[in-house]
Amino acid sequence: TNYLFKYIMSTTNNNSLVFYITGASKGLGKVFTQRLLEKGHRVVATSRDTDQLKSAIANNSDSFLPLKVDLATEKSVADSLAAATAKFGRIDVVINNAGYSIGGTVEEMSDSELRQNFDINFFGMVNVMRHVAPVLRKQASGFVLNISSIGGFVGNYPSFAAYCATKFAVDGMTEGFAAEMQPFGVRVTTINPGYFRTEFLNSTSFMSTKTKIDAYAAAHKFEEDHRTQVNGTQQGDPSKMLDVILDLVQNTPIDKVPLHLFVGPDAVDMAKQKIERMSKDLAVWDTKARSTSF
């Protein structure tokens, strides 16, 4: 069977892959980096704060390259990818993981708050994709895995519209990029996790709008419940998500690589429920929807 991983292995001198991971100082990125290094892979890990990154990842081996990167700045991203290829000679798997959420309704959201959320969650990811593309095209191999969310497919979360919007954008850009890179032997997947137990709902990764309008009490309660009840009780194990990702990049035939990978039973169930609702809407409106041609 034609496995992309086996092709990559045939072009390298050892049995380790080179990973490039953004947002590696906490959350999923930290767990992924730690476990990949334990498994003997090489990891280029990026963060806005290299001191925090080095403190989070206690590894002084030659397999670990921690880099300070401002994802919103193209030169910073381009320089980090140049450093990665200079160090390891190639990049096999990109995991665009960096991101944060801002809670607040659409009416409460300021223009600057929304744009800042897109700068990291979406435009920062695109900067990596744009500058890693020539590296992967030249190799004629590799994976780009964009960490989205079930909120990038199911958006009916009050007070989380901005976050969901950034992740819907991630999914749309990923689909287009996947079609563009396919002829070069590069595979691209959007990962849509459900609730996984990380620091994501802590104050360092979960902000709130400065403006709050009393009329949105129900939305505010939904947001507060995530801070106080969901945070720390998520059922998803980040280490097990990495197991799924490694199975994807190591064991999946090229023609079986999914465009969307929903991870976690909650994500799978919510995705199926939305697909069912969409199918019903399509059926109800089928005749009228088809009546619009000249």
Rank of each mutant, 00 (worst) to 15 (best):
T50K: 13
K212C: 04
L65G: 03
R115D: 08
D243M: 07
N156E: 14
K68I: 09
S208L: 01
L81M: 08
D92A: 03
L282F: 15
D214H: 13
A178E: 14
G27M: 06
Y100F: 15
K274D: 03
N251M: 05
I147P: 00
D214W: 06
T85H: 04
F177P: 00
M270G: 00
M270E: 15
G172L: 13
S291A: 13
S293R: 05
Q182M: 12
S80C: 07
S141M: 13
L261F: 09
L67R: 10
G172R: 14
Y163V: 03
R187D: 05
I191L: 12
Q234E: 14
N15Q: 11
R115H: 12
T204E: 15
V154A: 05
L81A: 04
K87L: 02
L36W: 07
F64Y: 15
N60Q: 12
D119R: 04
D281E: 10
I254A: 13
T211W: 00
A215K: 11
E180K: 06
D119Q: 09
L71R: 08
V132M: 06
D51F: 02
F19Q: 02
Q229T: 07
E107T: 11
F262D: 04
Q250K: 15
N117E: 15
I254Y: 04
R277M: 11
A178M: 10
D255L: 14
L4N: 04
T252D: 07
S55M: 08
S208A: 11
F196Q: 01
L242H: 11
S148P: 05
W285H: 11
S16Y: 12
A84R: 00
G185I: 01
T190S: 15
K30S: 09
Q182L: 14
G124T: 01
K274N: 07
D255R: 12
